[in-house]
Amino acid sequence: MQYIGYGSLKERAAAEIRTAIVRGDLEPGTPIKDVELAEKLGLSRTPVREALATLTDEGLVETKPHAYTRVTALEAEPVRDALVVVQSMHSLAIGIAVPKMTAEDITAMRAANKAFQAALDADDATAALAADDEFHAVAVRCCDNFAVTATIDRYTPLVRRLEHSRFSSPHARHSVTQHQQIIEACEKGDDLRAAALADENWSTLKEEL
């Protein structure tokens, strides 16, 4: 029997609740009860409570002691603030990464963009979001900058619902072309163009606000 540690249970709970919020299964303002969630997830209340604390830190859940725990409203200002930071960090990451990229990295970006297009063709926004993550993750890994990575991890959750909304619409197809342009700039070693294109790609999320 495989042992699943407490930390893993908390991470599993956080991942499942986060996905439900991002997809809109748990809409903004929806009350959250840890007992009901624990039963639904087949977990004890402790990892679920800790998962909700994580999601509160991420800005997806808000809690008032002895009053409520609920999904946060999708408010424009904090989301816009987070998007500006995430957008800037991804642009910086790819600018740093381009000189370090190998042929394998370029291949990984192409594969991720192919998976992204396939997910969009299948109208699967969740799969598209995962493929888009993998596409941008190549540059983040290659840049090898802990501060960039930590900042992206910290503020990305706030823009997740924008991303899911974007990838649920026909407008998302344009991102496939933008990704291809980024790949071509990386292949040519043009870090400035790659960074500018990444910035442009992330800026399209502002339309969802």
Rank of each mutant, 00 (worst) to 15 (best):
M101E: 00
S88V: 05
T30I: 10
V159I: 15
A130K: 10
V22C: 10
E58W: 11
K10Y: 12
H164D: 14
D121V: 12
L209N: 08
L209C: 08
L26V: 11
D133E: 12
A119N: 08
A125K: 09
A150N: 05
S175V: 10
K206T: 14
L9V: 07
E75C: 01
A73L: 11
T149W: 03
L9S: 12
D199S: 09
K114M: 04
N145F: 03
E58Q: 14
A185K: 06
E134I: 01
A125R: 04
D57S: 13
V48F: 03
H179K: 11
A112H: 01
M101P: 01
V176G: 11
E27S: 15
D191M: 04
S175Q: 12
K114V: 05
L158K: 15
H179N: 13
R161L: 08
A172R: 02
S91R: 02
V148S: 03
D124N: 15
R45S: 14
S165C: 10
D191I: 04
K114D: 09
E134F: 00
E208C: 04
R18L: 14
L52G: 07
S168I: 14
E187Q: 14
E207R: 04
R80N: 11
L74P: 02
A122I: 07
L26T: 11
A73Y: 08
A76Y: 00
F146T: 01
G5I: 02
P99K: 02
I17W: 13
E77P: 08
F135N: 00
K33L: 03
I152D: 07
H136C: 00
E208L: 05
L92G: 03
I94E: 00
S91L: 00
V98F: 11
Y68R: 10
K188G: 10
I106M: 03
A53F: 11
G42Y: 13
T30F: 12
T177R: 11
A147S: 06
E62T: 10
C143T: 01
L37D: 04
R160G: 14
Y68G: 06
R45W: 09
T102L: 06
I182V: 15
Q117N: 09
E77T: 06
F135H: 00
I32T: 07
G42N: 13
V159P: 08
H66P: 02
E104Y: 04
L129Q: 11
K206M: 13
A139V: 00
H171D: 08
V79K: 08
G24N: 10
V48M: 07
A15F: 14
V84E: 15
A139I: 00
R49T: 08
L192N: 07
K114W: 07
L9I: 07
L41R: 15
V140F: 00
A97D: 06
A115W: 12
R70S: 15
G42D: 13
P157D: 03
A108E: 02
V85I: 15
A130N: 09
L158Q: 12
R154N: 10
M109P: 05
S203G: 06
E36F: 04
A127C: 10
L205S: 11
E134N: 03
R161W: 13
E104K: 06
V148W: 03
A14G: 12
D121Y: 09
E77Q: 06
M89G: 01
L192C: 07
V138D: 00
E184I: 10
D81Y: 12
L9Q: 15
E11R: 12
A127K: 15
D34F: 04
E16W: 06
E58H: 10
R70F: 13
